[in-house]
Amino acid sequence: MDQVRELASKNAAVIFTKSSCCMCIVSRTLFYELGASPAIHELDRETNGREMEWALRGLGCNPPSQLSS
């Protein structure tokens, strides 16, 4: 959980996503279209992405079923 908090504190906008999630791709595109430059962390490409996903759940995030695959 500490790593998630640390990554989230480094940027004004942070997106934890998975590369295969269509809603995540749409959200990321929307941020870019609005002129934001969010930090993107794709959990399926992170070495400890599964642990990060569980940490996010512990913080109250409830990702769609695609994220838990």
Score class of each variant (00 low, 15 high):
M1F: 11
M1H: 13
D2G: 05
D2I: 04
Q3C: 05
Q3M: 12
R5S: 15
R5G: 06
R5I: 14
E6F: 08
L7C: 00
L7M: 01
L7H: 00
A8E: 08
S9F: 06
S9K: 10
S9A: 15
K10M: 14
K10L: 14
N11H: 15
A12H: 02
A12N: 14
A13Y: 03
A13C: 05
V14C: 08
I15M: 12
I15F: 04
I15K: 00
T17Q: 14
T17M: 07
K18Y: 04
S19N: 12
S20L: 04
C21V: 09
C21D: 10
C21S: 10
M23P: 03
M23G: 10
M23T: 12
C24F: 04
C24V: 04
V26E: 06
S27C: 02
T29Q: 07
T29D: 11
T29I: 02
T29P: 01
L30K: 00
F31W: 10
Y32M: 10
E33A: 06
E33G: 01
G35C: 03
G35P: 00
A36F: 11
S37Y: 00
S37A: 01
S37F: 02
S37M: 03
S37D: 07
P38M: 00
P38R: 00
A39G: 08
A39Y: 06
A39F: 04
I40K: 00
L43F: 08
E46N: 01
T47S: 09
T47G: 05
T47E: 14
N48S: 13
N48G: 10
N48C: 05
G49N: 08
G49K: 04
R50E: 12
R50W: 05
E51G: 04
E51A: 15
M52W: 12
E53C: 08
A55K: 02
A55L: 11
A55D: 02
L56F: 01
L56G: 04
R57I: 15
R57D: 03
R57F: 09
G58F: 03
G60E: 12
C61M: 10
C61L: 13
C61R: 01
P63S: 12
P63I: 14
P63C: 13
P63F: 13
P64S: 15
S65Y: 11
Q66A: 13
Q66L: 12
Q66N: 09
L67W: 11
L67V: 07
S68Y: 10
S68F: 09
S68W: 10
S68C: 09
S69N: 11
